[in-house]
Design a binder for these strands. Structure first.
Lengths: 115, 115
DNA sequence: CGCGTACACAACTAAATGGTTGTGCAACGG
DNA sequence: CCGTTGCACAACCATTTAGTTGTGTACGCG
């Protein structure tokens, strides 16, 4: 693609969440910090592949990394998730309003057609 | 990529949301149903490209389409957004718990080191 | 020191993504 | 009936993505 010049934050977050492996990594991290190898262990996938996934999560700022000796433990960063949750919540509200009206409309039709 | 065999629902939804153009389309639709051309108008992009974006949104079941004469109006479908919101909400809760404990821990350290 | 462990970087690849242009086609309006 | 409108399908292309293998390197340990 000719491509968007600046991939915005929200796109990074949603993009990071749009992969089962990465969501599984986040779920694993929710139960406690972990090293790359610990994260890689449950998956039928190379350590390098997991490393790449972690980098995606880092770019989206969903995880932070520290440098502890030879290990590079991963920890969750919730800030960006709030942005995603915020967007969805905002739009769910609008959706919901519209659907309430739609429900009314349908109810109205039913009332006329199924007396 | 060798690829996930079955791209699950959540991935489709997050994937659909991971694009500014598609989010803009959803925002436009939140203000009322629209035809493809109406949706395409604000963008410096061909009608066909918008058509593709809409198809992505349809696959994620974020929009529904009806066939009204020669027009194919688009309308929002909130069901899947709930799934995404649910996932985030669930994990935000876990994150928050962890951060509360972290805050406690930090507070505890401060208490000892900065009397 | 020399080895193992834990990880990252590089190069390669297949497939998906996001765009283009060109074309077809169904429906309405004169 | 014929042109215009509204949209989808197809072929093509560049870029990104998600994986691979191979290799390098920093750190801790005996």
């Amino acid at each position: 693609m000719v491509g968007s010049v600046t991939t915005d934050e929200l796109s990074l977050v949603f993009g990071a969440l749009a992969d089962p492996t990465r969501r599984a990594i986040l779920e694993r991290l929710a139960r406690g910090d972990a090293t790359v190898n610990q994260l890689a262990e449950p998956f039928a996938m190379s350590q390098q592949a997991i490393s790449k996934h972690i980098k995606v999560l880092e770019k989206a700022r969903l995880v932070r990394r520290t440098r502890a000796a030879q290990a590079r433990p991963c920890a969750l960063d919730a800030v960006r998730l709030d942005a995603a949750a915020g967007w969805i919540a905002e739009h769910r509200r609008i959706w919901a309003d519209r659907y309430d009206r739609l429900d009314e409309h349908i109810a109205h039709l039913r009332e006329r057609n199924e007396p």
